[in-house]
Amino acid sequence: MTQIQILSPFSGTVVRMEDVPDPVFAQKMLGDGLAVHPDEGLAVAPISGKLIIFHSAGHAFAIEAAKGRITVLVHIGLDTVRMKGEGFRCLSQVGDRVSAGQRLVDFNLSAITKAGYSVVSPVLLPEPPEAMRLVKSEATHVSAGVDLLLTAITP
């Protein structure tokens, strides 16, 4: 049995996936997890592993865990792809090996709000391995790179 601890990439208030105001995330079409309403514009790596996706707009990335065959996807805000990178500063790139807690994106929270988008940021596991169990944090507020958000347990 492998237990992978997934740290919160953001500091902020925890939001249930079902309550994310975007049907694709809320209906867990991509996978299950939790979302965070960040209170500062910083995203860190939730796990150690390889950065396999970093969208060119800087608003989303995915890390493949070094072990345990899981991938964690982090999406900063909703519909923020439309901002085309404005207000997002990436500090890493695809292919990089990153450590849990490492700073990956600086973003401008008020720019997202001003552009009319939600800052609610889903953190989820797309295509989880069969029989994986996901334990969700019951905390209401989490700190980036410090607090556990999710635990993935694979047989």
């Binding site: 049907p23 694709v24 209906q27 991509l30 060119s56 991938t71 797309p126």
Partner: peptide, 21 residues
Amino acid sequence: IVGRPIIMGNGIQVVVGTHAE
């Protein structure tokens, strides 16, 4: 694709997986 496409007015969203970009 995952689920059904979401169509709102003339807008469409299709969930295809992590290779969408």
